[in-house]
Computed example of a mutant assay.
Amino acid sequence: MKRIISLLIVIMMTVGIVAGCGQNAGNGTMNEKSSESSVAPENTGESQDGSDQSAGTAENQEEAVTDEFPLTVKDAGGFEMTIEKKPEKIASLTLGTDEMLLSLVDSSRIVALSSMADMEGTSNIVEEAKAFPNKISSQSLETIISLSPDLLFASSWTDVNLLEQLRDAGIVVYCYESPNSIDQQKDTIREIAKLVGEKEKGEELIAWMDQKLKEVEDKIKSLKEDEKLSALYYDSSTYTYGKNTSFDDVVTRAGMRNVVSEAGLDGWPQISKEEIVKLNPDVIIVPSVSWTEQTPEAFAEELRKDPGLKEVSAVKNNRVFIISDAHRSAISQYIVYGVEDLAKAAYPDLFK
């Protein structure tokens, strides 16, 4: 029950949507970058060797379309749909698909991004999103219908009533499952890339993620097991991350141990400060975005000065870090930056 409640609170804070997606199966039709290699590849219409992927005869192009479409698939809610042809008018209701799509398809194929796409602190595509006039949310039923997209991306937490209304209006809506690991995130990218007819672009994006992860792995590979620091995420609502969460995977790939997982806690539990003392993490991670009047900096300082936490390793050794929410909690390729951010904060000497 704790996990369900905490998940709902996170969802309400980030997207303002509180119901499940497509619970009954049915049928339907139709930042900061450290180097050049840090930038997620964008869809330019060219392959990595510089050749023009759009070049070719009409016959070849028609053959490529026939190979992939029509495409019949089931989404995370068990809803079956057929995408008759390569989508040319794509809309996105989630920040995750906003970020993935901008690296998978030409911007001319996107008719709307989510209302979070240009939100400072949570989005990795703030500047790019400014070029898109249409921003949609769960309150945008009429706008979405008026845009008449070939394909609309939603998530496993999107309001089922909204989905029913959109599908009744003839909109093809695909809900993806929120990933709980970086490998699952790669699978989601493959899934989205297939649906938009850009499987090769999807593999390029995954290769970029692997490159970034390998760069971090090479930096921390000298760490011995007893040198790896333990970590704990904590926010002002007392929530943390346990097993079966992307954060747990991010911590592990950053060369650290998640003390909440080691304690056997799953999902998104709430913990008290007394429990933090018992867990005694070497590092405490706090969010970079606040949903209250208290700033992230003020919350971090509150933890550092809390007399009840003075014996906690993270506090004693000044390892209470604010890590970018846009990276750490990304439901897109940008989650690899979360691994890099955390590894750099925990082991700065290895990144000099």
Score class of each variant (00 low, 15 high):
residue 1 M to G: 13
residue 2 K to N: 11
residue 4 I to N: 07
residue 4 I to S: 13
residue 10 V to C: 10
residue 10 V to M: 12
residue 10 V to A: 14
residue 11 I to V: 10
residue 16 G to F: 00
residue 16 G to L: 00
residue 17 I to Q: 15
residue 19 A to N: 15
residue 19 A to H: 11
residue 21 C to F: 01
residue 21 C to L: 01
residue 23 Q to H: 11
residue 23 Q to P: 10
residue 33 K to Q: 13
residue 35 S to F: 12
residue 39 V to T: 13
residue 42 E to A: 15
residue 44 T to R: 08
residue 48 Q to P: 11
residue 49 D to R: 08
residue 49 D to C: 12
residue 54 S to V: 05
residue 56 G to V: 02
residue 58 A to C: 03
residue 58 A to M: 10
residue 60 N to S: 13
residue 61 Q to D: 11
residue 65 V to I: 14
residue 70 P to Y: 01
residue 74 K to G: 05
residue 82 T to C: 05
residue 82 T to L: 09
residue 83 I to H: 01
residue 86 K to D: 03
residue 86 K to H: 05
residue 90 I to F: 02
residue 90 I to H: 09
residue 97 T to R: 08
residue 105 V to F: 09
residue 105 V to Q: 01
residue 111 V to H: 04
residue 113 L to G: 09
residue 114 S to Y: 05
residue 118 D to T: 05
residue 121 G to K: 06
residue 126 V to D: 04
residue 127 E to D: 15
residue 128 E to Y: 03
residue 128 E to W: 00
residue 129 A to I: 05
residue 132 F to C: 04
residue 132 F to R: 02
residue 133 P to K: 13
residue 141 L to S: 05
residue 147 L to T: 09
residue 147 L to A: 04
residue 150 D to S: 07
residue 151 L to M: 10
residue 154 A to V: 01
residue 159 D to I: 01
residue 160 V to C: 03
residue 168 D to M: 09
residue 179 P to G: 01
residue 186 K to P: 00
residue 187 D to V: 05
residue 190 R to L: 12
residue 200 E to C: 00
residue 200 E to Q: 15
residue 202 G to W: 00
residue 207 A to G: 09
residue 207 A to E: 15
residue 211 Q to E: 15
residue 212 K to I: 09
residue 219 K to T: 00
residue 222 S to L: 03
residue 222 S to A: 14
residue 223 L to C: 07
residue 227 E to M: 08
residue 228 K to W: 12
residue 229 L to T: 05
residue 231 A to E: 09
residue 237 S to E: 11
residue 240 T to V: 06
residue 243 K to T: 15
residue 243 K to I: 09
residue 244 N to C: 06
residue 249 D to L: 06
residue 249 D to Q: 02
residue 263 A to L: 09
residue 264 G to F: 00
residue 264 G to E: 02
residue 278 K to N: 12
residue 280 N to G: 08
residue 285 I to E: 03
residue 293 E to F: 08
residue 295 T to L: 12
residue 295 T to P: 01
residue 300 A to V: 05
residue 303 L to A: 01
residue 304 R to S: 14
residue 309 L to F: 06
residue 314 A to I: 03
residue 318 N to V: 06
residue 323 I to G: 11
residue 333 Q to P: 02
residue 340 E to H: 05
residue 344 K to T: 06
residue 345 A to M: 06
residue 346 A to L: 03
residue 348 P to R: 06
